[in-house]
């Protein structure tokens, strides 16, 4: 259920069945010698598994910081259970104001567009280039080079691909699974200027040295696959490719 992506960064995932396909429900745990950061809290459907896995990876200590990438279920739901399990934890909401409005009255608000430290580890959080609801953030871990992307870069997968990274999927991530995810997830694709969005993605990946794109509902995408995967996402965002 958990595996190490790069040094100190562990991918914790469950697979939720969905009409014959699977959808990843992921959290990421970053742990060095002294501190632990957990990206997202996951769904209550997998609460016991997540807590068990975090306990295993942290020798029962739990996270020092919970960094949320999205302020809806299934990203936020286990925060209270985590505090029951491990005591008071610094939780960073994916909203800039009024965390109580998203059900997290004790959380700290996000700090976007500047380097910040969580448990002494440098991150930069930005408003996502692609998201559904605005209460979301992408987080770049400057130490590992992993970019956590919330809803963006998600896709469905087949049962035989559970727990695989993009580099391990023979033939790559099937286009129809990327198509289906975006057509299901985003109701505004008809209004997008894909050239403009694609240009912004290209700039972002030129600026950042990304080792993995780490979505919550998709397979982690390794550096060598990012350019091709972004091309696939841009194609998936074309509703004509589905309707035709």
């Amino acid at each position: 259920m958990a595996r190490e992506l790069v040094d100190d960064v562990h991918w914790i995932r469950n697979c939720h069945p969905d009409d014959g396909r699977h959808l990843h429900m992921s959290e990421y745990l970053l742990r060095d010698e002294t501190d632990t950061i957990l990206v997202d809290s996951g769904s209550s459907h997998y609460r016991e598994e997540i807590i068990s896995e975090v306990n295993r990876l942290t020798d029962g200590g739990g996270p020092d910081v919970v960094l949320l990438t999205h302020s809806t279920l299934p990203h936020t739901e286990n925060v209270p259970a985590f505090e029951d399990e491990w005591g008071e934890t610094e939780t960073i909401a994916a909203t800039g104001r009024f965390p109580e409005v998203v059900g997290l009255p004790d959380a700290e608000v996000r700090q976007l567009n500047q380097p910040v430290e969580f448990a002494g580890r440098p991150f930069t959080c930005i408003h996502p280039l692609l998201t559904d609801v605005t209460v979301s953030q992408w987080a770049y871990d400057h130490e590992s080079g992993v970019l956590f992307t919330a809803e963006a870069f998600g896709h469905y997968h087949d049962a035989e691909n559970c727990g695989q990274t993009s580099a391990e999927m023979e033939g790559g991530i099937p286009m129809e699974h990327i198509d289906d995810f975006y057509m299901d997830k985003l109701p505004f694709v008809d209004f997008l200027d894909r050239e403009k969005l694609g240009d912004a993605f290209e700039m972002l990946f030129d600026i950042l040295d990304v080792t993995y794109v780490a979505p919550i509902h998709g397979t982690p995408v390794a550096a060598e696959d990012i350019d091709d995967y972004v091309d696939d996402v841009m194609q998936a965002l074309d509703p004509q490719s589905v309707d035709s």
Binding site: H16, P17, D18, L23, S43, L73, K185, L186, V189, V242
Partner: peptide, 17 residues
């Protein structure tokens, strides 16, 4: 179901209880 071109993942209602 979803408002876009897809039908929405069947999991959505479960995940939102």
């Amino acid at each position: 179901e979803a408002a876009g071109h897809g039908t929405g993942h069947g999991t959505e209602h479960e995940l939102y209880h």
